[in-house]
Design a protein around this nucleic acid. Structure first.
Length: 884
DNA sequence: GCGATCACG
DNA sequence: ACGTACGTGATCGCG
């Protein structure tokens, strides 16, 4: 007989995690009676995962019984600092228990004991009966129960991402045994459970002591031999607290439970009850899964009715007074080169589909698509605009883009695949393209009737989203962002992508040869110094040479070995002459592979590079650039030479570039309302020098040394990123203490900045999101994480996103206005690139003086802030020199 | 397919 | 004491 497997769930902690996993859609999960169901839903998702992955024979979910336990009797303040539990969560707990019954899973609670103790006791008994035990929890404390029979899975993020603690994993990670964990907690205390431990002892010191002495008892037995120190004094003073904490930390494995292991058989879903429950909760997707007996498949998706689109019925279909949904089907991501394979239209006349893209030669259809008075709905306007441009049709009249709308509502729901995206709105009647056409090498076009059906289903999906999303945009106050920024920006970006930027192949070829020679020379030199050949590009082989053969001292570890990154190598530079060769080799190799060769491979038939801007990708609202990335062309040092290859596309034209000066700090000055910082910008001071005066307490700008300015600049950056003293200290190579002083001085001189930072974190906590000046929204569910690490990251994000995102809003508005202005003034000048705070154009030489006037004018007036914006411009025959 | 590295703002 | 800057994309080696 196979071994029995018992899975034990920590009900309260997992339900709580489930609640916050879907906290950002809290209001989306409500029954008609008003009951919130997000935690119930996420809990069930987790159950599905655990049941299918874990295949238990027996199962139990343990819950906390109430506020008072034997621990509160030991220590009145136990868990005394827990914030008020949200009622939206508490109301769901009874239903989670009901769910468990319907799924054939036992649950249990016991007065005076926590769920931990129930789990510990049952696990203990099951181990004795040779069960394999797995415990699932959101609380690391339970890892003390790990042993040969028992694994503890702790949630890392959400409820489906689990870290599995086996005996081995625990030992590897902590360096102590699971049983010693109790003594570690005794020393550290636990802020979330509100018990103290020993003063000034945290995880680091605690681990050191446990490793040295083995146990709490051993520490105190040997305390007299310990040499005098503050630590020793604290240990002695807090002895009682430590032993009390040990009692609190230890999970009781002898709790007086009234159930037996043999009663815990997992019964499986109780179908009538479960269907009933899902219906009550309005869990459509779970109901469908039950229906299918497994996950939903193509066979049960509802296909939309449609008819063939022909030249004959086109006139009737285009005779419409409502919005027409348009699908242009082309395979692959790169719409600059992909071929059309079909077209579909949908409106009040029905859905019409063809797999003959040649229908685009019909003048009526071409006219309709280009008619700004005929409203249209699409998925990915930019893509469609470019596809049609290549057919010499200028798409107009699009007033709904399901991709853009979905992205604005939640920047995480941004799949470039319509089928995947609608699934997030519980719509399952469209396959993902990757499923329909196959992925990678296996991609092929299915039979025409299937393709037509797929396109019809796409039309229906967009129609569904057009009903569903606009009210939500309005709720979020995002109508302007959608209608006046992202939608028009799509067309501007399409035009920039189509324009492309000219590249001088001869320059790149010459660089390729030079780099090839230098790489050969450096390679020979490195092999000579190492004593043998090896692959310098392999961090593994390189660290073998450096740290084993040459005996250099490793500074930093990575997951697989020792780090060989630039900052590490720089610290080793004095120790061996090979290091500078390696640094040089790395730099040249990067230039060669990514830039020279990479760019040469991306040049289109017209001698230009046409990047694609991802408009629905970043979490902050910035654009990104792919295939190739033209937003990370080297700008400093030698690498900047690459920019000499970027030239204007006509004889007698130039490259013209304007960038916002300090836009993020200006945005911060505006958002925070800090008077001191605002004054500095109003007076057009050098802001980094000004900050240097503030944090170094100087009286006049003349006292600011270049080094002070450098440090102040780094501090300004740090503030924008959501400051930490450690991060700043690493960045400018100062002590952490000094960094902390800088930050304190900074906040003292710019007090409103500090208030603003606190306000953003608070807003993320109470509203679940932060937003930009144009109401671009980012949800931050991690702000409630129990993990310090994850939570701190969310807090920095809460501070940074409104700043970075508002700057992104501003340049987007400037781009739209700029494109209009160029048309108005009938200029030949063309906007080519955007690099976050910079716009790059090409123009006939005689238009340069005009650009010098109007580009800063348009950029400066994009929005009205409490402080002025500032723009700097430059121009030349190549991008290299078109930079101030 | 993922981690390490390094390019940009 | 905790473990760190924010946002990206391309290339490489390795499993």
């Amino acid at each position: 007989m196979t071994k029995k497997k018992l899975i034990l769930l920590d009900g309260n902690s997992l339900a709580f995690r489930a609640f916050f996993a879907l906290h950002n859609v809290l209001e989306k999960f409500r029954t008609s009676d008003g009951l919130h169901t997000n935690a119930i839903y996420a809990f069930n998702t987790m159950l599905n995962l655990i049941l299918s992955k874990g295949q238990p024979t027996d199962m139990l979910v343990a819950f906390d019984a109430g506020k008072t336990t034997f621990r509160t009797q030991l220590f009145a303040d136990y868990k005394g600092n827990r914030p008020h539990t949200p009622s939206e969560f508490l109301e769901q707990l009874p239903y989670i228990k009901e769910l468990l019954t319907a799924r054939g899973i036992k649950s249990y609670e016991l007065a005076n004991y926590e769920a931990d103790d129930i789990i510990g006791t049952i696990a203990h008994q099951a181990e004795a009966q040779d069960y394999e035990v797995m415990i699932v929890t959101g609380d690391k404390d339970l890892t003390q129960l790990v042993n040969d029979h028992t694994t503890v899975a702790v949630t890392v993020k959400g409820v489906t991402d689990l870290e599995y603690y086996t005996q081995q994993h625990f030992q590897d990670k902590m360096g102590i045994s699971p049983q010693q964990f109790i003594d570690l907690k005794a020393l550290m205390g636990d802020p979330s459970d509100n018990y103290p431990g020993v003063t000034k002892v945290g995880e680091k010191t605690g681990l050191r002591l446990i490793k040295q002495y083995g146990s709490l008892e051993a520490i105190y037995q040997n305390i007299d031999q310990m040499k005098a120190s503050k630590l020793k004094e604290h240990l002695i003073a807090d002895r009682d607290q430590a032993f009390l904490s040990q009692k609190l930390a230890r999970i009781d494995v002898q709790a007086p439970i009234t159930i037996k292991v043999k009663d815990l058989t997992y019964e499986g879903d109780q179908l009538p009850e479960l269907i009933n429950f899902y219906e009550k909760m309005n869990f459509q997707s779970f109901l469908r899964q039950l229906d299918a007996g497994e996950s939903p498949t193509a066979s049960q998706q509802k296909n939309s009715d449609f008819q063939l689109l022909t030249a004959a019925n086109l006139p009737q279909i285009l005779q419409t007074t409502t919005t027409t949904t348009v699908i242009l089907e082309a395979l692959g991501d790169n719409y600059h080169t992909a071929d059309l394979i079909g077209l579909a239209l949908g409106n009040e006349h029905g859905i019409y589909v063809t797999d003959q893209p040649e229908i685009l030669s019909e003048p009526q259809l071409r006219q309709f698509l280009a008619d700004a008075q005929k409203p249209k709905a699409v998925f990915d306007l930019k893509r469609d605009y470019v596809l049609l441009w290549r057919q010499n049709v200028r798409l107009a009249g699009v007033d709904f883009d399901a991709l853009l709308a979905s992205y604005l509502l939640d920047v995480n729901n941004n799949s470039n695949d319509l089928g995947e995206l609608v699934r997030d709105y519980d719509y399952n009647d469209l396959q993902a393209d990757a499923d329909f056409y196959g992925r990678g090498a296996k991609q092929k076009i299915p039979a025409p009737d299937l393709v037509r059906q797929h396109l019809a289903n796409k039309v229906a999906a967009i129609q569904f989203l057009q009903q569903k999303l606009p009210p939500k945009l309005q709720e979020h106050d995002q109508d302007q962002l959608f209608d006046e920024i992202e939608l028009p920006l799509s067309q501007v970006l399409a035009q920039m992508e189509i324009a492309g930027i000219k590249v001088d192949v001869a320059t790149l070829n010459q660089m390729q040869q030079d780099y090839r020679q230098r790489l050969q020379d450096l390679e020979a030199e490195i092999y000579k110094k190492a004593g043998h050949q090896f692959n310098i590009n392999s961090p593994q082989q390189l660290s073998q040479v450096l740290f084993e053969e040459l005996g250099l001292k490793p500074i930093k570890k990575t997951q697989r070995g020792y780090s060989t990154s630039v900052d590490v190598l720089q610290k080793l530079e004095k120790q061996s002459p090979i290091i500078s060769d390696i640094l040089a080799y790395r730099q040249v190799a990067k230039m060669q592979s990514t830039y020279v060769v990479g760019l040469l491979n991306s040049i289109a038939a017209d001698g230009k590079i046409h990047t694609r801007y991802q408009q629905t990708l970043t979490q902050t609202g910035r654009l990104s650039s792919v295939d190739p990335n033209l937003q990370n062309i080297p700008a400093r040092d030698e690498g900047r030479e690459i920019r000499k290859a970027f030239i204007a596309s006509h004889e007698g034209w130039e490259i013209f570039s304007s960038d916002y000066s300090q836009i993020e700090l200006r945005v911060l000055a505006h958002l925070s309302g800090d008077q001191n910082m605002q004054q500095a910008f109003k007076d057009n001071y050098d802001i980094h020098a000004h900050t240097a005066m503030q944090i170094f307490g100087l009286q006049s700008p003349a006292e600011v040394t270049p080094d002070m300015r450098r440090k102040a600049k780094a501090t300004n950056f740090g503030i924008v990123y959501g400051i930490s003293d450690y991060g700043l200290s690493q960045n400018i190579h100062i002590s952490r203490k000094q960094a902390a002083q800088f930050i304190a001085a900074y906040f003292e001189k710019y007090p409103a900045v500090k208030e603003y930072m606190n306000k953003m974190v608070q807003k993320a906590r109470t509203d679940g999101y932060v937003e930009t000046i144009m109401h671009r929204r980012r949800y931050l569910p991690d702000i409630h994480s129990r993990s310090h690490n994850v939570r701190a990251f969310a807090e920095r994000t809460a501070m940074n996103t409104p700043i970075q995102g508002s700057a992104a809003d501003i340049i987007k508005i400037a781009m739209i206005n700029m494109q209009r202005r160029l048309t108005q003034e009938q200029l030949q000048a063309t906007m080519l690139l955007q690099v976050h705070d910079e716009l790059i154009f090409e123009a006939p030489a005689q238009e340069i003086p005009i650009l010098e006037k109007i580009v800063p004018e348009v950029m400066n007036s994009a929005v009205h802030l409490d402080i002025p914006l500032k723009v700097e411009s430059a121009h030349s025959t190549t991008w290299y020199d078109a930079k101030g």
